[in-house]
Each structure stands twice: as C-alpha cells, then as structure tokens.
C-alpha cells in the first residue's frame, strides 16, 4: 500500500511543474493579449511576389 506514496510524490512533482509553467506563461505576457494573435496568424507571410519586386 505504501507504494501509493511514490505515486503521490510523482503527481505532486508533475503538478509543481504545471504550476511553474503557469507562472512562466503569466510572466511571459501570454495572458495579456488573447485577441491579437488570433488575427495575426491569419496573415500570409510576405508573398513571394512582393519579395521579387523588392529585390
């Protein structure tokens, strides 16, 4: 039955890892703007045609 302690510690470590990931994400500003990235991803990268014109 004591083997459950190993599982508990493993789960705790995993949860701590998630907590750290959450802190990192907040600090990194990922929750500050939840709208613009959803629009930004819809833009094409610079079109080849434009590149050739520039060169």
């Amino acid at each position: 039955m004591r083997i459950i302690l190993v599982l508990i510690f493993l789960s705790l470590i995993l949860a701590l890892f998630f907590l750290a990931a959450f802190f990192w994400a907040v600090k990194n500003g990922q929750y500050e703007d939840d709208h613009t990235p959803s629009i930004r991803m819809l833009w094409e990268d610079q079109k080849p045609k434009d590149l050739s014109q520039e060169e």
Partner: peptide, 14 residues
C-alpha cells in the same frame, strides 16, 4: 492576483 489564484488552485487540487 493571477499568481495568487494559481497557487490557491494548485493547493486546492492537490
């Protein structure tokens, strides 16, 4: 506040 919620939520679940 967000950090505090994170800590409380983490402790709550565990």
């Amino acid at each position: 506040l967000i950090y505090q919620i994170g800590v409380a939520g983490f402790a709550f679940g565990n």
